[in-house]
Write a protein that binds this DNA or RNA. Structure first.
Length: 585
DNA sequence: CATGAAATAT
DNA sequence: CATATTTCAT
């Protein structure tokens, strides 16, 4: 039933459909669809809704009509899609919803109908339950696929699709909401075909991007009547979702490929099920669900992070991350499919959140649970964070000693503060009006190996600015202003063409590190400057308030007098003893 | 129970 | 082999 050819066909169809749709947006079909306003003013709704019925079998058609009319729908019967289409295009009649019978004979025509009348919520009915037909119909925009005979309940409820359409027609965020569905589809196809060409997947992905109607059965106003689409508790419509991080956990599809026939065999009835998306409240559970189900398929879980309102107003990167909707695939048998999440993928975005959290907390307070809180990434567990933190610290540890050695040589050999836990905040060169750094400064950052290094992702942190090449597995990347998207990353103006001090000092090391790369001259943009200022402020503040800590490179030690003066201004009259820095652990 | 480090798994 | 998860000691 599913074969690669079908996949290709489906994908191509979708492409056609989409482009068609885009092009024809303006000359849209006659206004068949209610607007939300119309609906709101509708008396006795759904009475009077006009139903376009395409049914090749006259008897069935009549029967259906009678039922529908009993329910106060107004029914127009067409024997085939051509008649229906001409009626639509003549504007001789307008319709709110269509019920279309599809069978093996008329399917191609019906597909055409779906493509053409894509604004009309269309419910498919059929005697056969060929999964590929079902899927294609849905993919082409059908809102529901029902097996004949259709129960009265189902018929009664078709109005819901009208409402759905009306309220979501030009929807702005709907396409976002469909991503998970898209992913589900892709996942399913992948498992169906073993390994589908990624190019094709991309097409599907792109296509579905703009299509709000596609697979609307899984949308936020799911049609309750649909047997095959269990309504997931979607909470995608929470408008508060400002940011989303994604971390996908994928399990190896390999081991499961063999057992993933459930969709077409045992579960011909249903294809997707939208699982609960992480609403801020339901949080981790969405991801945590795991089970032993053996017949589940490859699953990808993306979590959605919702910053509540003003929680992070200043997060300028809020939309920078690779926003994938949270989604999960379940097999259709009601058995929760999969979700054996295997690994958290520490994507650059996710890592950035992590780093931001660590920075925000300060190194001393950076413990997994708090980091987790700050990250606000659903589904991420404390363990995940702890693990990542461990790795993070390890890398730090390798680096910092050298760094400290170089920057704050301790005369007396008292090096107690020169390792990670006691790293002062201002461990990176601050900007100071009176102390500009010659030649500018480049701030290297770590980039997790294997990460796409389009130059965007940075492991850097003001707390952990590496000055030396850490170890072979981590890239060093001079901080590039252009990519100063990580909160708190130091950004400084730099002189074009002159390598920064740092680079000069460590050049030999870089050459031995294969992935090392320089980011040449960079220019500052206003937001980066702003970011830099924030960082600088923070650094200076800290330097002032914690005079007992070593000063960052490039910052002149203030005179004791100045410090005391400043401290008294801030109400700090006592300086902690030198011997014990205010570190907790 | 949470943390951090070591062991183990992928 | 790198990195994520799990286990284990604290």
């Amino acid at each position: 039933m599913f074969d690669p050819k079908f996949l290709m066909h489906l994908v191509l169809s979708l492409s056609c459909f989409r482009s068609q749709k885009c092009c024809k947006k303006e000359d849209a079909m006659p206004a068949m669809v209610c607007t939300a306003d119309e609906l709101l003013g509708w008396k006795d709704f759904p009475k009077g809704l006009k139903v376009l019925l395409i049914e090749s079998d006259a008897c069935s058609a009549v029967e259906m009509r009678l039922k529908l009319e009993e329910m106060d729908y107004i029914v127009s019967i067409f024997c085939n899609e051509n008649e229906a289409l001409s009626a639509i295009s003549n504007k001789s009649e307008c319709f709110h919803v269509a019920i279309v019978e599809v069978n093996t004979q008329n399917s191609s025509g019906i597909f055409k109908f779906l493509e053409t009348a894509n604004d009309l919520p269309t419910i498919m009915i059929s005697d056969n339950n060929c999964i590929s037909t079902m899927m294609k119909c849905i993919a082409l925009g059908a809102v529901e696929f029902l097996q004949k005979p259709v129960s009265d309940d189902k018929l009664q409820n078709i109005w819901q699709h009208v409402v759905h359409k009306a309220f979501n027609a030009g929807g702005k965020d709907v396409s976002e909401a469909l991503k998970p569905v898209k992913e589900s589809l892709i996942s399913m196809l992948q498992l169906q075909f073993g390994n589908a060409e990624t190019g094709k997947q991309a097409s599907v992905e792109a296509e579905q991007e703009n299509n709000q109607d596609l697979l609307s059965g899984c949308d936020k106003y799911p049609a309750p009547s649909t047997p095959q689409l269990k309504q997931g508790e979607r909470s995608l419509d929470d408008g508060d979702c400002q940011d989303q991080a994604n971390f996908s956990m994928e399990q190896d599809s390999a081991e499961q490929d063999g057992e993933c026939k459930s969709v077409e065999t045992t579960c011909g009835n249903s294809i997707f099920e939208c699982t609960a998306l992480g609403s801020p409240a339901s949080g981790e559970d969405a991801v945590k669900e795991e089970h032993e189900s053996t017949n589940c398929c490859r699953t990808e879980i993306n979590t959605t992070t919702c910053y509540e309102g003003k929680d992070r107003p200043s997060n300028k990167t809020s939309n920078a991350a690779g926003l994938n909707r949270s989604s999960a695939v379940r097999d259709t048998c009601g058995i929760k499919a999969s979700k054996k999440r295997s690994k958290v993928d520490w994507t650059p975005e996710l890592h950035k959140k992590f780093v931001q959290a660590v920075e925000q907390l300060g190194i001393d307070q950076a413990i997994p649970s708090r980091i987790l809180e700050l990250m606000k990434v659903e589904g991420l567990t404390r363990h995940n964070v702890a693990s990542h933190l461990q790795k993070y610290r390890m890398h730090r540890r390798h680096i910092l000693p050298k760094e400290n050695e170089r920057r704050w040589p301790h005369p007396g050999g008292s090096a107690q503060r020169n390792y990670y836990p006691h790293k002062p905040v201002m461990a990176f060169p601050p900007y100071h009006p009176n102390h500009t750094i010659p030649g500018g400064q480049v701030y290297p950052a770590w980039i997790p190996p294997g990460t796409y290094t389009g130059g965007i992702h940075i492991w850097g942190s003001p707390y952990y600015p590496g000055w030396q090449v850490p170890n072979e597995s981590w890239y060093w990347k001079p901080y590039s202003v252009t990519h100063a998207d990580a909160w708190g990353c130091p950004v400084m103006p730099q002189t074009v063409g002159s390598y920064p001090q740092f680079a000069q000092q460590t050049a030999p090391d870089f050459q031995t590190t294969k992935e090392m790369q320089y980011t040449g001259s960079t220019l500052l943009n206003p937001s980066d400057l702003h970011a830099a200022e924030e960082v600088i402020d923070q650094v200076v503040k800290e330097a002032i308030s914690k005079p007992w800590l070593p000063l960052p490179l490039g910052l002149k030690p203030p005179s004791t007098e100045c410090v005391l003066n400043e401290l008294s201004k801030q109400g700090i009259s006592k300086i902690p003893p030198h011997t014990n820095a205010p570190n907790i652990r």
